[in-house]
């Protein structure tokens, strides 16, 4: 269990940022992940009074506030329609509705967990994060950055031509994924994202346009993913199993995007 000595419901991001510069202070998103740890927190920084719990649809993007819950993201009709169900698919297997009403987008993305379904999924779409100090940066860049004391303000899901399909494999329903996969198609290039390896999701670009070449190409690209991505063992699955399943998921995703199948929904 974690402990908290003082609680600050901040009234501005500046106040939150200043508090967050002290090592003993910690931002609380939904608090679900923090609760599992043993951290002794001096001041818990609560962002829930800043109106960051909204998802706003603008002409060219969805602005997803850091304090929006996973359930809000899952059930947003605009995002569901725009992403062809991919975002919903990445969320609906996580624990249960009550849990997803508590866990936040900010905590999930800031945490940069290797197993994260939403992080993997959003890497397959055109996303940026907005940090209080560092400003806007591409999500793929943020995912690789070391954790610092900045604040994640919102995730920006841009409306582009990109189409993505999300798939994951779990040992049992509602458990953590043992491998997750996005296949993503767009004018700026096609690629796959493989997560829960079990480390951070990685992107494999399809530089040879294999995915555009029908079933043979899909198989070749799946093989490329299996060869290039590092998979490792943990208590849930072996690296060899993950590698095998990742290949299957890539092929299914490709079939859904280029072959008109919808077996991943």
């Amino acid at each position: 269990m974690f402990t908290i000595r003082a609680y600050a419901k901040v009234s501005s991001l500046e106040e939150a940022y200043e508090l967050n510069q002290k090592k003993m202070n910690t931002i609380i998103g939904g608090g679900l992940w923090l609760r599992m740890g043993k951290k002794n927190i001096q001041t818990a920084i609560d962002l829930s009074g800043l109106g960051l719990d909204e998802i706003k649809e603008e002409e060219d993007a969805f602005m997803i506030g850091a304090m929006a819950t996973l359930r809000q993201l899952e059930t947003h009709p605009g995002i569901d329609a725009y992403t062809g169900g991919a975002v919903k698919e990445s969320l609906r297997h996580i624990v249960g509705v009550q849990m997803r009403n508590c866990a936040t987008v900010g905590g999930s993305i800031y945490g940069r967990f290797g197993f994260s379904d939403p992080l993997c999924c959003l890497l397959g779409l055109d996303c940026e994060v907005e940090l209080y100090r560092a400003g806007r940066i591409p999500l793929a860049e943020f995912a690789k950055m070391k954790k610092d004391n900045d604040i994640l303000v919102q995730v920006i899901l841009k409306k582009t031509d990109r189409k993505a399909v999300y798939l994951s494999q779990r040992n049992s329903a509602t458990d953590f994924p043992v491998v997750s996969c996005v296949v993503s198609k767009g004018e700026k290039g096609n690629y796959a994202v493989i997560g829960a390896r079990p480390c951070l999701p990685v992107i494999v670009e399809d530089c040879e346009d294999l995915l555009e070449r029908g079933e043979e190409g899909w198989n070749a690209f799946a093989q490329k993913v299996q060869q290039e991505v590092a998979f490792a063992d943990n208590t849930r699955a072996s690296g060899a199993y993950r590698r095998h399943v990742a290949g299957v998921l890539v092929k299914r995703g490709a079939k859904a995007l280029w072959g008109g199948a919808d077996e991943c929904r």
């Binding site: 908290i4 609680y7 419901k9 609380i28 608090g31 679900l32 818990a44 609560d46 009550q98 508590c102």
Partner: peptide, 10 residues
Amino acid sequence: VLSCSILAAR
């Protein structure tokens, strides 16, 4: 929601 996982303060 899961009351075990939410702080009373929240």
